[in-house]
Each structure stands twice: as structure tokens, then as C-alpha cells.
Amino acid sequence: MTSRLLDGISHRGVALLAVLLAVLLAAPWIANDYLLTVLIIVLYSAYTGQAWNVMMGFAGQLSLGHAIYVGLGAYAAAALYVHFGIAPWLGLAAAIAVAVACGAIIGFLAFRFGVGGVYFAILTIAFAEFARIGFDHFQWVGASSGFFLPVANYTRNDLWNLRGDPTMFYYVMLALTVAAFALCHVLLKSRIGYYWQAIREDEVAARSLGIDTFRYKMYAAVLSAGMTAVAGVFFAFYYNNLFPEQVFHISRSIELILGPIIGGIGTLFGPLIGAFLLTGLSEAMQELLSALGFDAPGAKQVFYGLCLLVVVMALPGGVWPWLAGKLRVTRRDP
């Protein structure tokens, strides 16, 4: 298993991964509270980016409505907790089930009826919008006035009920990110990963090689939806409040995909690198502008946008493929 996990990564790459993991594990002892919350956001985007990457980066199906899975997962687990006192780890199963069902419906409609490319993207946006509008009127979970989880001062961390301090949430998110990374790595090295890439590259050619493209696209849609729903559960219990206008909004879906695009679509490290860069950039911009005493509204967004533009123009394949070349971490001949 370990050999399979490290398959295709050079010794240098393994060493760098170990250092990165050690730093991330030690972070709560080194970092202050502010930095720790920033790191939680970084890991959250790395995880959701990885989940989206399964569908777009690996299988080539562009979803612009992934917020729907975050939202469904968040609402499912939160509702079970608030209304029935069901712990989030059990609620997680329901969250995954709801998101998987939704992913399967969208996937079935699109893949069975040959909806692809931008039309598929529009379909995913439409479903996310349906959900946003639907939850705005869903009284059982607070509708548009929001749904709140009980917040109190906890004397100790309650991992079972996901109630506790940022350090606990940090480690939960770190574990999820590592698990998603390992899962994607193993999948990419197995038959399903090869088949996804074949579909991404040329679906007609993939079919001519005996690949049931409908089935493999469905696997990607369902897995990506399920993984994203897990992040939704985290979101609900970390922020303790859910508003349909926030969680299902298209800007959430866009935020979610920026990391892997900047980091490198279809690569394992892309979502991770992208998350660090984007969140780091955003926070640094904030600090820099306030240090300079520059307080024009929207200035941060403008600079942020410009930085993204520069990255996309300079490295159209994403940061990771370029960085990997510099660091010499990929092994050609396993």
C-alpha cells in the first residue's frame, strides 16, 4: 500500500512531501490564532479543490455548480444535528448520500443525453441555483433567514460532535486534505484514473478502446459530489451558520475552482498549491493594503484579480507543472 501511495513520486518529492506534512502537523504550536484560521481556509480550499479536480481535472467534466454539494452536505448534517441531535460523523453519511444522489441525477441527465462542455457547465449552475432558491424557502432549515448551530464555550474539544477550538478543526481539515490527496493519488494510478484521463482527452477514442464512458463519468460525478459534501459538513460545524445566499451562491462555486485552476488542473498538487497561493495572496493583499493605509473599497479585489491574471498568463497550465519541473519531483520511469 505504501509503495502504491508513493508510486511515481521521486525520492526528492517524497522528502518534500514529508517536510510539508511535518510543518502542517506542527503548525498549531507555531502559528498564532489568526494564522491558524488562515491555514484552515487554505486546507478547506485545498480539499474542495481536490474534490472538484476529480470531476474536471481527471474526467474532464466542467462543473461550475459545486457549491450545491457543499450546501447539501452542510444542510443535511446540520439539520440532523439540530433537529435530532445526530452527531456530525453520522450525519456525514446522510450528507454524502444526499450529495451523491444529486450528483448522480445531474450526471445521469447530462451524460445520458449527451450534454457536454459548456452546456454541462450551465446545467450544473442551474442545479446550484435551484438549490439556492429552494433552500431560501425551506422553512425546516430556516429558509432565507439562516440556519444556526448552537454555539457555546466548550471546556474541552468534543471531536464526536465537532465542537471545539480552531486547533481541533485544523487537524480535522488536515486529515481530510491528506486523505483526499492520498485517495486521488491512488485513483490516478489505477484503472479508473487512466480511464478518466482517456475520457478527458478524447471521449470518442476512449469508447473505441472499450471504455464505458457513461459509467466512468458517473463515477467521477458521484465521487466528486460525495467528497465535496464532506467539506460541507465541516463548513456547517466550523462556521455554525448557513445561509442559502451564501453557501449555494455561484461565487462559492467559482471560489472553489480557482485553486485547482491556478495550481494546475488535473494535477494532484495543483489544488494544494493553488489554495496556498490564493489564500496567501488574499491575506497578504489585505495586510499590505492596510499597512500602506490604502483603504479604497474594492482595491483588494482589483489587485487580487490582477495577480490572478498574471499567473494565468505566465503559467497557463497552472503553477504546479512549472514548479514540479523546478523541484524535479516527478519520476518518469516507475
Binding site: A198, E201, I211
Partner: peptide, 19 residues
């Protein structure tokens, strides 16, 4: 011809062999 352009020559053939 319809190769899988971004994949290596070997991976192109590996995908066929996986059937």
C-alpha cells in the same frame, strides 16, 4: 488520428491494455 494528446505514448497504450 485521435491520440490522448496530454498523456505519454506509453500511457496511451496502457489505457488500451487495461481492457
Amino acid at each position: 488520428v485521435r491520440p490522448f494528446p496530454a498523456l505519454s505514448v506509453e500511457d496511451n497504450v496502457v489505457i488500451g491494455a487495461m481492457l
